[in-house]
Design a protein around this nucleic acid. Structure first.
Lengths: 290, 290
DNA sequence: CTTGATGTGTTAAAAATATTTCATAATTGT
DNA sequence: ACAATTATGAAATATTTTTAACACATCAAG
């Protein structure tokens, strides 16, 4: 199947000497705008290269493919593989473990999730979300669900240092309506909702939206119904070889947002960190030396 | 012509809201291995995405193309243009953002952390930790600190489903000595302690160790002093371009351990999941349909 | 629970694309 | 220069792919 060694374009290069005039003319045309030209219809390629239709068919057979469609399929495979970054192909992450070990399988999946998630993010929407989160004129509410409340709290802990007026609301708790009383127009809600989307979370989002609040939604690739109310919707890939979904990609995005928000608010954040450190010193919560 | 925005993938992304369920499922599949999947035959794409053939035809029309071939032609054009640009290197994760954008800088750092962390893990120690965690004859205590208690709780929520006898202890709380009363020889403590190592955590670990418990430590590359008491010590890289450290790598490792533990205990886990689902159904906590 | 509207998949017809056949042109060796 | 060989393209055929038509299923409103 012409899988001699490397890429198909290399293979064509090597074959160039064994091709006839018309075929070579065609081959060079294919290489000219590789691989796009080879992915179109045979007829178009022939016309483009200035050769006849059967010439194309004959050349791909000479290259070792059964027919033009098979040649195209090979090109697509190559393209697919190429899009994966070199780091994603790194198939053993824990070098000491076999490639089938859960450490490697799981990591592989997570890296792929990260790649896909980041690839689909709209940076301007992301920046907008960070600006909203860092805006101290707006009260910041952070809403998590049954599992995601851990992520919500992680965000809360950091935002609390970065800025004042941050509240952590747990949608599974029946106390959340009380928090909503304080929400006013222009306030910001960061809502976590991944599959097994929660009714409470949706209700909370609806009420917040009615009150004129801005919603930033952290969800999965299938997107929680909350997304219809959201100002910014960040969807994460979460599928891994496990009975549960992965929060790692969401964690990454979250930390990136924290980092961005902290930069936006740096003067204030710095002062607050110092104050916090002072308090830690006084309570002797931490060890003095590493 | 649908050349409204920039790339076709952007356009699809923007359109996502106007698409129906099956169409969205298809669109996501297209984006997954973009652009390769869209360059193959319609039939293959439909099968790949798990939707019917006409759905594909309808979606591309919704996107503004006259038919599937026109859509493909547009993809090829885009591919042709992309290859011409010399910097086709995939060193940017969020392609739409400049390489200096925090999204790319942060992700780059995290991936590097993952690579280094996984590279240094001893698989047999890792497996040993998973076995201990999955062993239902030992009570499992999960201990987190000021920030890490969120990770601890994440682990707790999942382990709680996988097996009975799991307790979440927060070292910053003054109630933890009470939990220790129940700890007996052979029990397992998963302890989270990253820099700004906490005195309370160390004390707790010491007492647990005295009582003959096994300690699994999740720490950073400099390793918490708890490591001297630990049966297994898993150290993570945590440095990122931020004022704080990253928990993403730790989250990855955690989820991998959950996945491994769940496999070890599968029969029991499965039964427990089913029971849980039943209860969810009865409480109507979740939405029935996506 | 029924109705109407919308979405979705199965099937069949239409269109396009790819392959084969064959006649002609170009090339090579004598 | 002439035959033998090989290469090439036009046209016909076969195949695949795409589109259109229809029927079933699903969901929201009354």
């Amino acid at each position: 199947m012409a899988e001699a060694a490397q890429t198909i374009s290399d293979h064509i290069h090597k074959m160039l000497d064994d091709l006839t005039r018309a075929e070579r003319q065609l081959a060079l045309s294919v290489l000219e705008t590789y691989p796009a030209s080879g992915l179109g219809p045979l007829t178009a390629l022939a016309k483009d290269a200035g050769v006849s239709v059967p010439t194309v068919a004959r050349m791909v057979q000479k290259l070792g493919y059964k027919g033009y469609p098979e040649f195209q399929a090979a090109l697509r495979e190559e393209l697919k593989a190429k899009v994966k970054t070199p780091i994603a192909k790194h198939d053993t992450w824990a070098e000491a473990a076999p490639s089938g070990h859960i450490l490697n399988r799981f990591t592989e999946a997570v890296i792929e999730n990260i790649r896909l998630t980041l690839g689909q993010i709209d940076p301007s929407a992301f920046d907008h979300a960070c600006n909203l989160m860092a805006d101290v004129d707006r009260h910041l509410f952070i809403v998590g669900g049954r599992i995601t409340h851990t992520l919500a709290e992680y965000l809360f802990l950091h935002m609390q240092v970065i800025r004042p007026d941050v509240t952590h609301v747990q949608s599974t708790s029946n106390t959340w309506p009380h928090y909503l009383l304080n929400a006013k127009e222009g306030d910001v809600f960061v809502v976590f909702d991944v599959r097994r989307y929660e009714n409470n979370t949706l209700k909370l989002a609806e009420l917040a939206h009615e009150r004129g609040a801005q919603i930033i939604l952290m969800t999965d690739q299938w997107r929680s119904p909350v997304h219809q109310l959201a100002t910014v919707c960040l969807s994460n890939r979460i599928v891994v070889p496990s009975a549960w979904d992965s929060a790692t990609t969401t964690m990454l995005l979250l930390e990136t947002m924290i980092s961005a928000a902290q930069t936006l608010n740096w003067t204030q954040t710095k002062a607050r960190i110092e104050e916090l450190e002072d308090m830690f010193d006084q309570t002797k919560l931490f060890r003095k030396f590493t």
